[in-house]
Amino acid sequence: MLLSDLAPSGCATIQAIHASQDLRRRLGGLGVRLGIRVRVIRASPMNGPLQVRVGHTDLILRRSDAAHIEIQTVA
């Protein structure tokens, strides 16, 4: 499953990040790493970006970028 498909208030762990090294590093700097638990707080309407909580940080992430991140949902 991809992070872009995760419904608001859904929780998941990151399995793989299929992005350029640049984007991967940027994500890493913001705390998005393999094995980390993420939660989608809300989605902006009209297919807008997602608000994702990673650790103690909230991020704004476009759906197109979130589609590079593979996740596994946790109950």
Binding site: R26, L27, L30, T57, L59, I60, L61
Partner: peptide
């Protein structure tokens, strides 16, 4: 990419 922190 639009990868912004949403600070408190």
């Amino acid at each position: 990419p639009l990868l912004l922190e949403m600070p408190p």
